[in-house]
């Protein structure tokens, strides 16, 4: 399990990183936390000729308020989701998901930007970024652009990031006092990829749901929003009947594939059970 040979470049600025990538073409890879990339290299599943290390690009760090959004630098480590007060205050869904992401040492090194850019359909953060209606800030050879999370995830490990583009930051709407979040997942062991996971953020008008965004992971080729389910909830109180209706509606949102150890019907069942539990928790948070 040793990687194929490659050369290494440590970028200090976004421009340096982009230029290095442009110079090397398709054979280059950016490395951030590397917690998924390094095993892929060790297994020779990927074999770039050059690795461009962006861990020392200061522009990719930092969490700050920008208008009505919280801008979270791509290099923000998973652990900071647990420790940074700004995250707890303005992006509590990320805070709620963070303890479920792998294990402490992985969280010390793994980055939010890396996780979202990889777009592993079983990962927590890509799905929560989707639930949060985040904007993804991208830098590329032709300049900066913003992509909405709803348009960012395209297919299995495929995103709106073009080759040579770098994810710079995630911008999430600031959490408001009339909002509530809930998150949970079903994983065989602590820190494993979940059989199914679900996070949501709802805006309440008195006791009625004015707006809700629900995202699930480990249910398909990409993190999935449950749009029919959301529609079934908007305008209603979160009672047992409404939760049951949402669980039914989930059938229109998901079509999990068969896998060798989790039959599709079982995953659908688990998704419904989990949805019900997380909605129940959302109700309790009132």
């Amino acid at each position: 399990m040793k990687a194929r040979a490659f050369s290494y470049f440590r970028a200090r600025t976004i421009d340096e990183a982009l230029a290095a990538h442009a110079g090397a073409g398709d054979e280059a890879r950016f490395i951030a936390g590397g917690q998924s990339l390094v095993p892929a290299l060790a297994l020779r599943l990927q074999a770039p000729t050059i690795l461009i290390d962006i861990n020392h690009v200061d522009e990719l760090r930092g969490i700050r308020r920008e208008g009505d959004r919280l801008r979270i630098g791509a290099l923000t480590r998973h652990r900071e989701m647990l420790t940074e007060p700004l995250i707890a205050e303005f992006a509590p869904l990320l805070r709620a998901a963070a303890p479920f992401v792998a294990h402490p040492a992985i969280r010390n090194r793994g980055t939010l930007g890396g996780s979202v850019a990889l777009a592993d359909p079983a990962s927590e953060f890509p799905a929560m970024v989707l639930a949060l209606d985040a904007e993804i800030e991208i830098a590329g050879p032709s300049g900066r652009r913003i992509v909405k999370a709803d348009e960012f995830f395209i297919d299995l490990f495929e995103t709106a990031l073009a080759p040579g583009e770098l994810l710079v930051a995630i911008r999430v709407p600031l959490f408001r006092s009339n909002q509530r979040i809930a998150f949970d997942e079903l994983a065989r062991r602590r820190g494993d990829y979940a059989l199914v996971g679900c996070g949501m953020i709802a805006t309440f008008d008195q006791h009625r749901i004015a707006d809700i965004r629900i995202a699930l992971f480990s249910v398909g080729n990409l993190p999935m929003r449950a749009i029919s389910t959301e529609a079934a909830l908007v305008g209603s109180r979160l009672d047992a009947e409404r939760i049951a209706a949402a669980q039914t509606a989930l059938g229109q949102d998901l079509a999990p594939a068969e896998s060798d150890d989790v039959p599709a019907a079982m995953r659908m069942h688990l998704a419904r059970v989990l949805l019900g539990r997380v909605l129940g928790r959302l109700g309790e948070a009132a």
Binding site: L186, R188, L195, D261, V262, P263, M266, H269, L270
Partner: peptide, 8 residues
């Protein structure tokens, strides 16, 4: 005894 077996 996996969740799949129990649920089945």
């Amino acid at each position: 005894i996996t969740p799949a077996r129990v649920l089945k």
